[in-house]
Amino acid sequence: MDLKTKFTPQSWPAHPENATLEGKNKTLGFWIFLGGETVLFATLFATFLALKNKGPNGMEFSTQSLFELPLAFIMTMLLLTSSLTSVYAMYHMKNHNFKAMQAWIAVTVVLGLGFLGLEIYEFYHYVHLGFTFTQSAFGSSFYTLVGTHGLHVIIGLAWFILLMLRNSKRGLNLYNAPKYYLASLYWHFIDVVWVFIFTVVYLMGVLD
């Protein structure tokens, strides 16, 4: 692969992430990795479902008493919107419009940071109430599930930021296009997991 090749929007391939063998391998490998991640999160969900509301005798905390849906709803909206903005970024990537792509990724990062801020606030709030990681099995499983998702958000954000900085001077080429594409796939996957966290942990936690 030659990094010096200059592309115009017209000579830029329609699927830059799959235009090289490396790109093809990376995309497929990443999808397969996401399959593994799916099972990983399933394990965390399963454990949460088994341990939710379980704690020492007479524990005061429960999903009903703790969760505040409006906050979770706003977080969901932020993450959903950031998913769309990263779609925009990929749209511009395919059009070989580097500046627009970077801008949309920046928007995505800002939205992601907003989500992360709210999550940290939420955790802080619970810990303040005395609902901690070590307080009960419920606490351990809740923080592990939601925290692992939060960790993924952090990794996703770091990935986007590193990509933006590393390539800010040199623009798009067939070497970094797959990297951008994978980062955006990762971001969508994070959103997919959150949809289930919102539904299964928060909404259904408050239900019965």
């Binding site: 341990l51 379980k54 704690g55 524990m59 070590t134 009960s136 099995a137 499983s141 592990t144």
Partner: peptide
Amino acid sequence: FMIFDRMFDANFFDHLNGGN
């Protein structure tokens, strides 16, 4: 889970704190 339970006082497997 094992690491958390043994090293960071989590309660996944500790039935006294709701674990299993």
